[in-house]
């Protein structure tokens, strides 16, 4: 745990593996959020969004 992190380099980009894994995880979660069906999703009254503008 106390060892220095391993770094990877892509051209001028240098990033530690833990930080890279976090970013990859965020991209994966974002894509899953777009594709995964939302449970209990019902058609809801569209008039609910009729707000003053």
């Amino acid at each position: 745990m106390d060892a220095p992190a391993t770094y990877v380099q892509f051209a001028f980009i240098v990033i530690s593996v833990p930080n890279l894994l976090v970013i990859v995880g965020m991209v994966v979660v974002f894509i899953l959020a777009l594709l995964a069906p939302f449970p209990g999703h019902r058609v809801i009254d569209p008039d609910d969004d009729d707000r003053p503008r």
Binding site: F38, R42, I44, D45, D48
Partner: peptide, 9 residues
């Protein structure tokens, strides 16, 4: 209640 398009993660 929410508009139908809110049904997304």
């Amino acid at each position: 209640r929410q508009p139908f398009f809110v049904g997304s993660w």
